[in-house]
Design a protein around this nucleic acid. Structure first.
Lengths: 221, 221
DNA sequence: GCAATAGTGTCTTTGAGACAGTATTGA
DNA sequence: TCAATACTGTCTCAAAGACACTATTGC
């Protein structure tokens, strides 16, 4: 049955730089909006994709060479006005990745990413501005009660690095003492037998406790 | 472009009875699964629906005669295994309605609803069991930090009725004193110049403060 | 020793839970 | 006056914020 509806997945791949959250955009290689920066996306391939999550994984890997440590369905955008080709549905996902992992992948896969601050976007094709707004809001909101920001960090990290990450995502400062008390109580990190040495006192390294699911807290961080 | 993908909306319309949350199911009037109880749902009509929210409203009104006071996108279910007709996408919504409003509508619109407890469902067609589980989980979770349960009540209600509603949705008892303190602090109700008279001391009536958006709290109820 | 960062201890404030109290109605 | 429900006051406890303190490193 042909309902004449276009069905795609789009992925907002988000990372963290010194100056805030960034989203990965790629130059479109096809019409419409050929050559313009837009979210990685593509049609669902009913023959190869088990479901839309599989389609999102495939799109992300095909277009960026990455396998994200965190990928979650965001929202489904739809309507007759969002795509010049006609009535369309985009099942949008968002993904998180560490900046250094992303950059080394850019070299390895020989693709050209464009990074934009999520709060300073140009006008993008389709409703991609809205999708990115949704993704940033979801990330910021969910970070108040989950371990999500861990996925913006490398495999191991110090508590100070984790706190700075939460602060950049949330947009406000946290108290060091209270932060460490909560991290300790919530018990979602495991110590690694290493330290990060720098100019001064070395800091203990941690990794997120291995799990299939995102750690959700029963209170705020 | 025909991708051979079926695209539908399904609505989990939820109400509250004495013994807990109930979901409205209707007997399917078409194949597949003709005659079996299932969620109200239907194809997107690209010619008439502005977007999937409009489609969900239309489906709900066409099949039940209702306009729900609360309707929100839930999740998008997809894949090749959920529908015998082939690879399909269901943009699922959930809606809330008061039991008495629902029942009077059943008579007015001359439709036959079947109500099932969300925790005691038979095996349903497609992945409707999963959709209802998602809806009940979302409702219970969101009720801990929002005014959602108000939409399960009639237009006006007493504080005791509201507390009982929260308790039934959440599945645990709340302290009366603390509950009223919070309702007062959160300031999302407005008093109505009426009381509910019964056998004993009359109770003040309230309604939810008029707003376009759901009231979200910065803490737990 | 000094500067800088890592990490801890403790006081105060706030809000939640427990629970007992008072208030108002119909019969 | 009594039963039943509406509504309030107060004590205790736990978690959060503020902030000062100690610890460990390179130089």
């Amino acid at each position: 049955m042909d309902q004449g509806v276009i069905i795609t997945v789009d992925v907002a791949l988000i990372t963290l730089q010194d100056d805030g959250l960034q989203v990965v955009l790629l130059r479109r290689d096809k019409e419409p909006y050929k050559g313009q920066p837009a979210l990685p996306g593509g049609y669902i391939h009913a023959e190869v994709d088990n479901d839309s999550l599989a389609a999102a994984k495939r799109v992300l890997t095909d277009k960026t060479g990455l396998v994200s440590p965190y990928l979650e369905q965001l929202y489904t955008f739809s309507g007759g006005a969002r795509d010049p080709r006609g009535w369309s549905v985009s099942i949008a996902y968002y993904a998180l990745v560490n900046k250094d992992v992303l950059m080394s992948q850019e070299n390895a896969a020989d693709v050209a990413f464009t990074l934009y601050r999520v709060d300073e976007l140009p006008l993008l094709p389709f409703d991609h501005n809205r999708i990115i707004d949704f993704a940033a809001d979801r990330l910021r909101n969910k970070s108040t009660y989950s371990a999500l920001p861990c996925y913006l960090l490398p495999e191991t990290f110090t508590l100070t690095e984790l706190q700075k990450t939460y602060e950049k995502v949330l947009g406000y400062k946290l108290d060091k003492s209270a932060f460490r008390r909560k991290i300790n109580d919530l018990d979602f990190l495991q110590p690694v037998d290493e330290v990060r040495t720098g100019v001064h006192r070395p800091a203990k390294l941690y990794r997120i406790r291995p799990t299939k699911n995102l750690f959700l807290f029963d209170r705020t961080i």
